[in-house]
Design a protein around this nucleic acid. Structure first.
Lengths: 77, 77
DNA sequence: ACAATATGTAAAGTTTAATTAACATTATGT
DNA sequence: ACATAATGTTAATTAAACTTTACATATTGT
């Protein structure tokens, strides 16, 4: 799949607001701490399921936590 | 990662509204037709990137296209 | 009826998210 | 200063998204 834009996220900020450690959040989501670290440090993009779960524990909408910036649009056949 | 809910989607409906074929949509997104079919038929859940791209081509928000229903919440240590 | 398009599906292979384990560095509390 | 908690990071493995190829069936148009 071609790249259509870039995805950034607010996980670090939301977590910091709540004074949660990566470990706290990881436990809440039942993933490993490394998964949280990787997402925060943009090592990889979470699955849609995990993205929804993250938004849910922060009581946010998914697009408030994960920001998609599509590249400038050009028509293509 | 544990399951926290179920994800359904409106891809078939949005595509039908626009009278697009799976092939049309696949080309627009630069994925294969089988990927579209698999998503519509709940064979798998798209990546966050692809989910955003799909919402984008339909001019919808991601949570309008992909619906997350979390399971009933129970506290856990 | 025929041709062309649309959709379902399956197998084998690639890519990437996510796990597990491990170790290093930085910050916090006493 | 010391212990403990928090974070960065890496390597090896597993799981799942996605591709490619292929074939079957269903639908639509003429």
């Amino acid at each position: 799949m071609y790249q259509f834009g870039i995805i950034s996220n607010q996980v670090y900020l939301l977590r910091a607001e709540r004074r949660w450690s990566q470990t706290d959040l990881a436990k809440e989501l039942d993933v490993t701490r490394q998964t949280i670290a990787a997402i925060e440090n943009n090592k990889f993009i979470p699955s849609l399921e995990l993205a929804f779960a993250i938004a849910h524990v922060f009581d946010k909408k998914i697009n408030e936590v994960f920001i998609f910036k599509p590249y400038e649009e050009d028509e293509e056949e």
